[in-house]
Design a protein around this nucleic acid. Sequence first.
DNA 1: TATTGTTATACTCTATAACTATA
DNA 2: TATAGTTATAGAGTATAACAATA
Lengths: 138, 138
Amino acid sequence: MDEALNDDLRIALMRLVRRMRLERADGDLSDGQLSVIFVLWKEGAQTLTSLSEHERVTPPSMNRTVNALVKAGLATRHPSPDDGRKVVIEATDAGLEIARETRRRRAAWFAQRLDSLPPEQRDALIVAAPILRELADS
Amino acid sequence: MDEALNDDLRIALMRLVRRMRLERADGDLSDGQLSVIFVLWKEGAQTLTSLSEHERVTPPSMNRTVNALVKAGLATRHPSPDDGRKVVIEATDAGLEIARETRRRRAAWFAQRLDSLPPEQRDALIVAAPILRELADS
DNA sequence: TATTGTTATACTCTATAACTATA
DNA sequence: TATAGTTATAGAGTATAACAATA
């Protein structure tokens, strides 16, 4: 294994993500709330338990996060028609708009940096991107 | 700008870092505490204000974080010899060991993934790593 | 009985405001 | 007066334990 590759990649990834997280839609959503809105946007309506497992927090914690989103008008909570014990949490239009706006800002921030690269470096990243994507999903 | 590159890279980076953060030394340090220990390890002793600016939290918050580290024996706090208003915060040997152990675990976790790649993909990442490093630092 | 969600309670982390000490 | 740090207090976010409702 290439030690330098390991160190360089880890440090670069941590720094890039740290900066990227600062780019987000206006509004005072916490990291946890924003993360839930992204899940609802990308994967559709979810139950409380599925959200808590996805985000690796306990159901009571997720319940609080969902309450905050519902109170802010960014998500709705309805009983499941299939199973009376379950509740279905879904993003509202306002919630989806925050997700899209945050994605737009992060993409724009990143695009600005990518555009500043010489073409051969950008090409190198085009090759690397799917590999990193595979690493992340493995 | 290549839209797909932008999306693929951002998503891969976020996911990789999310997973990597879970790899850390034993002990119940919070993210904030661990992050401060890393700063002290990498950049040496710091004042309270410089730490709070580096981590983008308020001085009172950083004060609490530092108190927790001092109480746990991972950092020391001493008055500055130059300026009586300032305090100098420094990692102890125990603190440095936690930083090193966390680094070791993250490197090992990442190495396992990198080793699973075919050589040509690893080569592609060796080319990409310094470019990402530059992006992160720009 | 097991699962899903909620409430009660406590602890940590963050912030703002007010205070102390030093320059 | 301005700067560095601390203390007081309050608002989120997290967890565990206990409870209610449904399967």
